[in-house]
Simulated assay, not measured.
Amino acid sequence: MKLLVINPNTSQDVTRLIEAEASRSIRPNTELTMATAPFGVAYIETRAESLIGGYAAMQIAAEHYQQYDAIVVAAFGDPGLTALREIMPIPVVGMTEAAVLSACQQGGRFSVIAISQRIQAWYRECIASYGLEGRLASIRALDEPLQHIGQVQENQGERLIELGRRAVEEDGADVLILAGAPLAGLARSVADRMPVPALDGVTCALIQAQAMVDMAAQTPAAGSYTQPPTKPCQGLGAPLAALVGRQPVDA
């Protein structure tokens, strides 16, 4: 099994964190390929940044998907996830959806522990889009600027743990999600310090991507996720234009 793991952020340090956790979450016969957004922002916090990251993820996926069995969008908030599912003939799994669905299987309500205050609105909207806002106990986030996105765990680890404990004690969370690619691997390392299960979106997404390949779901021939209609495209690279417009760019 071959999986393409896309970091829609531009930070190579974050990609390395994702890869380290992803490598712990795969079977012996599963191969990983990591890809980092060639444009955009170091870490996504806003709706606008999410759209840019989603476009970067679509471009990477279009260029490489034929070599893989499934794709993982490795950013909390799932930039471009539903659009990728619409055009890809292979399974596409997102960190947020995978984490919140896994959380719902382990408890009644879950809390998200995030790296910034600004990110909260986008996270809430994403969770609501999956119909799970009623299961969200809270989002708790760091409240100071990040000095280095690749060192959030080292610099803010104790504060993140405290936010998790408060979410359990004050918000009634049954499960914690340590959100965002910069926190990849943290849930595994602090699980014994948390009073409830702590989930990592990378872990959840990799496990579910492998399961989706195992299920060998049929590519839809009808419904809203069937192939897009044929139409002219302009300004897109040929691989993406072939998927979005169903014809060459110069047609």
Score class of each variant (00 low, 15 high):
G134T: 04
A251T: 00
R47V: 10
L17N: 02
S129M: 01
M1G: 11
G107F: 11
G235A: 08
V196A: 12
V175K: 13
L136Q: 09
I161E: 03
Q247K: 15
A222V: 05
R109E: 08
P232T: 15
E170L: 14
A242K: 10
V175H: 11
A209S: 06
Q106S: 13
G107A: 12
Y68T: 03
T203I: 05
I207K: 12
G245T: 04
Q106T: 04
D143W: 11
G131K: 05
S23Q: 14
V202M: 14
A20S: 09
P91C: 03
G40P: 07
I60V: 11
L206V: 03
G235K: 12
A205I: 15
Y43P: 00
G180P: 01
E31H: 06
Q147E: 12
I113T: 04
E133D: 09
D78P: 05
L240H: 02
L136T: 09
Q117P: 00
C204K: 01
L240D: 04
M194S: 03
E21F: 02
A56C: 14
T219L: 08
Q59F: 03
R135E: 10
A187M: 04
A20R: 11
Q153V: 14
R166D: 07
F110H: 11
L183C: 05
V190F: 00
M1Q: 08
N7H: 07
A238C: 02
